[in-house]
């Protein structure tokens, strides 16, 4: 319990750091932050609306401290300002349309890649110099060296554009209404196959190698040697003794990789015009929609922090030593 509370405290601190960073970024930039932030609004907004927007971001004549407090207040109310690219929708609403898709895409890709990569890592470590160990690590590292979005472009070009096996973009067909119907869900899976597949392909090598290397170290440990001396079946030695312990560093790595894979997944969304945060982000960049950009940064950071806490829960369940730790 203590462990989870400590971790929660850390994530709250990280969230506060991200909020503060978000507040100071426009103010650190050259020139008047309000001008930079709202340059595109000129002529589209009346003076009153501009004033409201200024207050949301605390860009008033007041002192920095009171500006900061105003800003924190609006964030806690869920007010992230108004989007320029999707004027006049509030940023929070715009982000809301994409969040589910991003979490679905990146989450599925992460879980699938982690599971397959870890299993392959176990196989590679147990049958050292077998074909899995000889061929897969290098080939997957090679695939992992491509930018995610480039793999996405190639996959889209070959499998979507040339062969026509997969749709060319979006999360579902234009002719369908969203809902929990079999037709709709099947279509969502069909649309997600390529983006998920390319992210999985790009990240598989990392999971394989990390699991393989920890497995090799753990296989040399005393407790695995004792398991072997006990005359246990090889499958039991590998899974219950070696893999079960080697999994722990990989799970820690999973938490660390969350943010990184998400970044790649955002770029992949762009290639597929997938309606997630990555797609919104590129719209924001093109239109210099700073409120939207900053909102996306904040929301994604919070999502990553939350996911990290879930990973901590899993770790707690996997490692009894964490449960008893007092420090």
């Amino acid at each position: 319990m203590r462990y989870l509370i400590r971790r929660l405290g850390f994530y709250l601190l990280a969230a506060w750091a991200a909020l503060t960073l978000n507040f100071f970024l426009p103010r650190l930039m050259p020139g008047d932050p309000a001008t930079a932030l709202f340059a595109r609004f000129r002529g589209r907004l009346g003076p009153e609306a501009m004033q409201a927007l200024r207050e949301t971001f605390g860009l008033t004549e007041a002192s920095l401290v009171s500006q900061y407090l105003t800003y924190l207040g609006s964030v806690f109310r869920g007010d992230l300002g108004i989007s320029i690219a999707y004027f006049p929708s509030p940023v929070a609403d715009v982000i809301g349309t994409g969040l589910v898709w991003t979490i679905f895409l990146a989450g599925t890709a992460l879980v699938v890649s982690f599971t397959i990569g870890t299993l392959l890592g176990i196989v590679a470590a147990w049958w050292r110099r077998g074909w899995v160990d000889n061929v897969l690590p290098s080939s997957l590292v090679f695939l992992g060296a491509f930018p995610y979005f480039w793999l996405a472009m190639v996959a889209l070009y070959i499998l979507g554009f040339s062969l026509g096996w997969f749709p060319l973009g979006h999360a579902y067909g234009d002719d369908l209404t969203p809902g929990f119907t079999a037709v709709f869900l099947a279509d969502v899976v069909r649309h997600a196959a390529l983006p998920v597949g390319t992210v999985v392909l790009a990240t598989l090598g990392g999971w394989l190698l990390s699991m393989r290397n920890t497995m090799i170290a753990v296989l040399g440990s005393d407790y695995v040697n004792l398991a072997r001396a006990k005359g246990l079946q090889p499958s039991r030695v590998v899974l219950r003794y070696a893999a079960r312990n080697a999994l722990l560093p990989s799970v820690t790595g999973f938490g660390m990789a969350l943010g990184f894979v998400l970044g790649g997944s955002l770029l992949t969304e762009i290639v597929f015009s997938y309606p997630g945060e990555g797609y919104l982000l590129v719209q924001a960049v093109r239109n210099q929609d700073f409120p939207l950009m900053q909102g996306i940064f904040l929301v994604i950071t919070l999502a990553v922090l939350g996911a990290n806490w879930l990973v901590d829960l899993v770790y707690l369940w996997l490692d009894p030593r964490t449960r008893d730790s007092v420090s």
Binding site: G255, L258, L281, T301, V304
Partner: peptide
Amino acid sequence: LVIPGMPLAIV
């Protein structure tokens, strides 16, 4: 380490 790098870099 825990703040996602890509969105921050973009901003």
